[in-house]
Nucleic acid binder design. Structure first.
Length: 436
RNA sequence: CGGGGCGUGGCGCAGUCUGGUUAGCGCGCGUGUUUUGGGUACACGAGGCCGCCGGUUCGAAUCCGGCCGCCCCGACCA
């Protein structure tokens, strides 16, 4: 992307409405613009991040055999009347009337709709288990939207739904999903901790929140540092093996991890002091098992082995995709700007031409830009070096390739790693290899 | 939904209490010169229905009434 032609409206000053770091930086780096309270337009740079996060989530969902579909944003009120939630949901639900006076709503979640689809399609135990997910915009008319994209009214969410013929199957689906979540967050460069969540009226222990750590998080959390050392991607952690799943689940649930409401000093102090971690956390995902709540209410039943009808056991599993963009920035920024983890960065590198018009600089930049094929932002603007440095740090791409007249004459560029600030003088080829 | 605050060029603000030439400042933007490795300097310039509607007044950004929008704290949530 040529910065001279790109719509990346960076701001030197912070709009007054933005209070927290991620919100300020998203506005300043030209990622989003607010259009109403809690509703944002995603500008080109921000959209790329959103897409990258979405893609990692998609790949990890697919990897455990979940199937993607896409349900509409607008839903008929009748479905929600069937589950009883039309009246229960309250003012958070955005209700809409169409021209025929039909009652509609902008979906805050999709349990009813997916249950409806499943009852149309699944007739026998042979049709189960099924895990379906979609990545779709949701709307919850929060009383008080805040923190930019982290607490918006309109938000992009991955929500998955599992259907199993019995409790054991539901538990298996639940654990597979938990594994997928840990892999997902790890791939994004995040430290995510699963914590037992309140299950509400359903009870049981099958509900976990996934919290990532950031200084400005909404709640205080405590956990055992050993969470940070686990590799979820490797072998011995297959979602297909019940033994692996059991071992994984035991590992997740045996270590201390809790929010301050459930913090227990006695158990906390059993952990060796050097492994105690505490900090602020942001919830980025939530999974829970809810049994037959919707299947029963909405008449989803399939024929069992014995020919009798059985009511499938369900679970649902959310990841706040748009929230993650803000959450990642909360967890990864400094005074100068965003520090994107490689996996979700909008581009790999910024190429800074410090002397536009200089033949040697131009030639090297062109070479770099071509070699990086769509993975770089080329700052070819006719602007001062200082402005380019400031914007590059603000945008936070993992690498900066600084091309100035001094080095260019000798075929040398400077490679800066955003996260460490470390700089190296290298040949063009060596820099490209380094970036990978 | 309770409490508080704010709406003035793209962004940040002053001016409002105490009504009165042409509504100001910094940044950004445009042109020129200058500078050339961390937002350079100078000059010139463009850009405003002072959130909206109504009222008071000879006269309203400023006073009064209503409405709308946005932010912050709390209760609530992916």
């Amino acid at each position: 992307m040529l910065l001279s032609h790109a719509f990346v409206p960076t701001l030197k000053e912070t709009p007054s409405e933005a209070q927290i770091a991620s919100h300020r930086l998203m506005l300043r780096a030209g990622l989003v613009r607010q259009t109403s309270a809690g509703i944002y337009a995603w500008l080109p740079m921000g959209l790329r991040v959103l897409r990258h996060i979405e893609q990692i989530v998609r790949e990890e969902q697919d990897a455990i055999g979940a199937q993607e579909l896409l349900m509409p944003t607008i839903q008929p009120a009748e479905l929600w009347r069937e589950s009883g939630r039309y009246d229960d949901y309250g003012k958070e639900m955005l209700r809409i009337t169409d021209r025929h006076d039909r009652e509609m709503l902008f979906g805050p979640t999709n349990e009813e709709m997916i249950t409806d689809l499943m009852r149309q399609g699944a007739k026998s135990y042979r049709d189960l288990p099924q895990v379906l997910y979609h990545i779709q915009w949701k709307f919850r008319d929060e009383v008080r939207p805040r923190f930019g994209v982290m607490r918006g009214r309109e938000f992009l969410m991955k929500d998955a739904y599992s259907f199993d013929i019995d409790y054991a199957g539901a538990v298996r689906s639940y654990r597979q999903m938990m594994l997928a979540y840990m892999r997902t967050f790890q791939r994004m460069g995040l430290k995510a901790i699963p914590m037992v969540a309140d299950t509400g009226p359903i009870g049981g222990d099958l509900s976990h929140e996934f919290i990532i750590l950031a200084p400005t998080g909404e709640s205080q959390v405590y956990y055992d540092a050993s969470f940070e050392e686990i590799d979820y991607q490797g072998g011995g952690c297959s979602h297909k093996s019940d033994e692996d799943l059991q071992r994984f689940y035991d590992l997740m649930t045996s270590q201390y991890a809790t929010t301050d409401e459930k913090h227990n000093l006695i158990n906390w102090e059993k952990i060796p002091a050097d492994r105690r971690r505490e900090g602020r956390g942001i919830e980025v995902g939530h999974i829970f098992y809810f049994g037959t709540k919707y299947s029963k209410a909405m008449g989803l039943a399939v024929a069992g082995h014995d020919g009798k009808q059985l009511i499938p056991e369900m679970g649902s599993y959310g990841i706040g995709i748009s929230r993650l963009v803000g959450a990642i920035i909360e967890a990864s920024h400094d005074a100068a700007g965003i520090i994107w983890p490689d996996a979700v960065a909008p581009y790999k590198a910024s190429i800074l031409n410090l002397r536009v018009g200089d033949a040697a600089c131009g030639k090297i930049c062109d070479t770099l830009y071509t070699a990086l094929r769509g993975q770089a932002v080329y700052d070819d603007r006719d602007a001062r070096a200082g402005e380019k440095f400031a914007d590059a740090d603000l945008m936070g791409l993992p690498w900066q390739i600084i091309v100035g007249p001094r080095g260019a004459a000798n075929g040398v560029v400077e490679l800066k790693r955003r996260v460490t600030g470390e700089r190296l003088e290298l040949s063009v080829d060596a820099a490209l290899i380094r970036i990978g």
